[in-house]
């Protein structure tokens, strides 16, 4: 059974169809990449799955049960976590407190010393050891991304949605970020990645879904996607051969 499945999910904003009847499935343990140009509906898709937006039609199932229309905190507690395209750590709280929120309210709530121990472990796992007492507002952009990820992981998700995790990073930070994602993958976490950096996405994903103007136009393994003429066309435009 698929861990997550979308059946004919649509979302309109005013007259604009941001997501048009998209169906897709995410299998347990796989890494699914979602790509597409700006405005193709990738982030909207994430917002629909995480409950920040409610679809106009269609059904979203998680572990077989419909979650369409549930509020975001309930979806989180069922096991779907997300990071944000523009990272949104709780700036006024310390790094540790950020993680304690996820630990206290996630799928398998922890409290007291168990939560504290786990928070240290999570800080270390994303490379923030020793920074637990720092206010999130004093962290660098890369460290804020790490914190956003650690907070999402703190909710003990079965499915993690990473929204442009590598946006705005320099090459060295990008390779660090890829290392982080690979480690999550190795731990058996199911991941859905939205990414603008196409080569990174092709390298990390086992399967790729391509969106264009809200519609799914292609789906398949990275090698096939990279050669798919429809995909090449939306990224490079159609080449007029004489």
């Amino acid at each position: 059974m698929a861990l997550l499945s979308l059946e004919n999910v649509s979302k309109t904003f005013g007259g604009v169809m941001a997501v048009k009847s998209v169906s897709l499935q995410v299998e347990p343990g796989e890494v699914l990449g979602v790509m597409g140009p700006n405005g193709s509906g990738k982030t909207t898709l994430f917002n629909l799955v995480s409950g920040a937006l409610v679809p106009n039609s269609g059904t979203i199932r998680f572990k077989g049960a419909p979650i369409t229309g549930l509020p975001p905190h309930r979806i989180c507690r069922q096991g779907i976590a997300r990071t944000f395209q523009l990272v949104r750590p709780f700036l006024g709280l310390t790094a540790r407190q950020n993680i304690l929120v996820g630990l206290g309210y996630g799928c398998r709530p922890l409290s007291g010393s168990a939560a504290r121990e786990k928070s240290e472990e999570l800080l270390a796992s994303v490379g923030l050891e020793g920074l637990g007492d720092r206010p999130a507002s004093t962290l660098t952009a890369m460290d804020r991304k790490r914190l956003d990820l650690a907070r999402a992981l703190a909710t003990s998700p079965d499915l993690l949605l990473l929204d442009e995790f590598m946006a705005g990073l320099n090459p060295q930070e990008t390779s660090e970020a890829m290392g982080l994602i690979r480690r999550l993958q190795a731990r058996g976490l199911t991941l859905v990645l939205v990414e603008h950096i196409v080569w990174a996405l092709l390298e990390l994903s086992q399967r790729i879904v391509v969106l264009s103007a809200g519609e799914k136009i292609a789906e398949g393994p990275p090698t096939a996607i990279a050669r798919d003429p429809r995909v090449v066309e939306i990224y490079l435009g159609s080449i007029p051969f004489p």
Binding site: P71, H73, P109
Partner: peptide, 24 residues
Amino acid sequence: SRIGLGMQAIREDEAAAAASGVGV
């Protein structure tokens, strides 16, 4: 308390708090 931390998370960022499991 945990609830107090949840309240502070809401103060900092409602959407991120909800995405972390806090019932806003």
